[in-house]
Design a binder for these strands. Structure first.
Lengths: 201, 201
DNA sequence: CGGGGCGCATGACAGATGTCACGGCGCACC
DNA sequence: GGTGCGCCGTGACATCTGTCATGCGCCCCG
């Protein structure tokens, strides 16, 4: 019997997926959680074989939880499920020791299969996402460029970004400018959108 | 027995929720669909008592589907489920004849209860969302302001917005300026974010 | 040890944006 | 039949952005 802890912030989805996994003969959902910290606590307490984590959760996202789990409980394998299949997310997830990664667009049987796969020491990556991640390449942005672009994401003016990043306004403009150039777009907002879609910020 | 058609673009969620509803003694999921047009076709073919629709779907969103259903099959009641509980969405949904509206954060039992409620001719609105929608008030934006703001949402420059809206650049600036003033924010991007969060665009 | 990349900053300039004032047109409501 | 409001536009101005050139210091790698 494979013991599973499930975390997703949407109760309806959590209940439904828990039901669904519970119907499999060899799977048992031993606990569920609605946010990152609760997931960490549940995994610590119930010591499951596999943790199925939503990528987007309040408190701590699936990747942060995965990192904690890897450090504190190497025996627990992590599968991440997400609505947003950004290439950068898959890379970060793999770096965090995640063994399974799939979008919510897959059929239920695939999730069950992935859980079995990682429980047996294997891996399961969604082929589409894996192909995207490989072909997408790494982020061309330097760390500071990414920082600044992230602060620019909410439409804040340069001056406010500068304050929040403890930089001079001119420096912020330079970073934004080089990010825009690297991404081949025409203004900061398109740069934000592109970087977001790739999971670079 | 209440016959249900379920539509959601994420297969995993669709499968899971279908399972879950199917476990209820008095509910029967007679068809599922993964996008708007497929939902319309499935409802036309299977003539369910209740249609449970995700708000975000490719092709036609839950509200468009609801409008079609109301026109062509008044006997089929619609419940809309969403990840994004924007006040404006609830208003639009009610205007489209939707009888039930709830976020995906509710427990599974609530969804089943809502389905029964609307099947019996009643309504079910999530109390939180209903309160938000009432207190949020209507959009202060004029139709054209909303149009222009929507076109500005992707970070397009004024000139492009003007072309796409068939307006003079100065007029676009005026609309953006008045939208920014009405929303009490400091630039167009914050205006877009606020209007988005309220479901006004 | 000498590049080369990166972080940080300044200054200057063109172009885009936000603001304000103003005017005309059409429509609905009193 | 006026009065208001929304819609559409122009022009001018201050400010913000995007771009470019340039400089300094740091650290890593060959």
């Amino acid at each position: 019997m494979i013991r599973v802890v499930l975390a997703d912030d949407e109760t309806l989805i959590r209940d439904a997926v828990a039901q669904l996994l519970g119907l499999e003969d060899d799977l048992e959902v031993v606990a569920v959680a609605g946010d990152g910290p609760a997931a960490i606590a549940a995994i610590r307490e119930h010591r499951p074989d596999v943790a199925v984590l939503d990528l987007q959760m309040p408190g701590a996202d699936g990747i942060e939880v995965a990192e904690t789990v890897r450090r504190t409980q190497p025996g627990c394998q992590v599968v991440v499920v997400t609505s947003h299949g950004r290439p950068g997310y898959l890379k970060k997830a793999l770096a965090a020791g995640v063994r399974g990664f799939l979008p919510k667009t897959v059929p239920a049987t695939v999730l069950a299969g992935a859980v079995r796969q990682v429980a047996g020491g294997g891996r399961y990556l969604d082929p589409e996402l894996a192909a995207d991640a490989i072909s997408a390449g790494d982020s061309p942005l330097t760390p500071r460029e990414a920082d600044v672009l992230e602060l620019a994401a909410e439409g804040a003016p340069v001056e406010e970004i500068a304050r929040r990043a403890s930089l001079a306004a001119g420096t912020v403009r330079n970073y934004l400018s080089s990010a825009v150039a690297k991404l081949g777009v025409s203004n900061r907002h398109e740069a934000v959108r592109l970087a977001r879609s790739q999971g670079w910020i």
